[in-house]
Amino acid sequence: MAKKNVRIHALEGAEMTAEGLSYKGVIMETVVEKCDGCERVVEFEDKKYCPSYAQPAIKWAHSVCNFATHVRAGVDKEGKVKVNPLKASKRAARGR
């Protein structure tokens, strides 16, 4: 029940303008299809918005959105989870 209260207040103070939904001085764009299933999506006046990022289409342009709650880390061709190469080299230097 507490989650519903958080979702209702996620866009508190937002108002619909001629440009779109205005929230804290930022124009919010509606979510894209890839956002379906994400727990962060909030409905405001029959349209769905992401309170975490104003332009969800840009977040999905190059890869997976880092705010997405319904997608897990990608797996490469060898079946291993992708790891940041810089972090991997540091771990190897420490002997992990």
Rank of each mutant, 00 (worst) to 15 (best):
R94N: 13
A18C: 03
A57K: 03
T17D: 03
S89V: 11
C38G: 04
W60G: 01
S63C: 09
D76K: 05
D76N: 13
V75C: 06
V81D: 05
K34C: 07
R96G: 10
W60A: 02
R72H: 12
F44S: 06
Y49L: 02
R7H: 10
A18L: 11
I58E: 14
A54I: 05
M1L: 15
E12I: 10
I58F: 14
A92H: 06
W60Y: 10
D46N: 14
G79F: 07
C50V: 04
G37S: 06
V42P: 01
A18F: 05
K59I: 09
R7F: 09
N66A: 12
V71Q: 06
K24I: 12
I58L: 14
R94K: 15
P56V: 05
E45C: 12
E43M: 14
V31M: 05
W60I: 07
H70P: 00
A18G: 00
M1T: 14
K3Y: 04
P51I: 04
H9I: 11
T69S: 10
M28F: 12
R72A: 14
Q55G: 09
E78M: 11
K4G: 07
I8Q: 08
Q55R: 15
V26F: 07
V64E: 12
T69W: 06
A2L: 13
R94I: 06
V83P: 07
A73D: 15
V81Q: 11
Y49N: 01
V64R: 09
C38D: 08
K34H: 11
N66Q: 14
E15Y: 10
V31Y: 04
K80F: 05
R96W: 11
A92D: 08
N66V: 15
K4N: 13
L21D: 05
V26W: 02
L11V: 03
K4L: 15
A92W: 01
E15M: 09
G95R: 02
A73I: 15
K3E: 10
R72M: 13
R40F: 05
K59Q: 11
K82V: 15
K82N: 13
V31N: 01
N5T: 12
D46S: 13
L11G: 02
C35K: 01
Y53D: 00
T69G: 13
P56R: 02
E39I: 13
I58H: 12
R96P: 03
V75P: 00
S22L: 13
T17L: 06
A10N: 01
Y23F: 15
I58G: 03
V42H: 00
I27P: 00
K82C: 07
R7N: 06
E29M: 05
A61K: 14
L86C: 07
R91L: 14
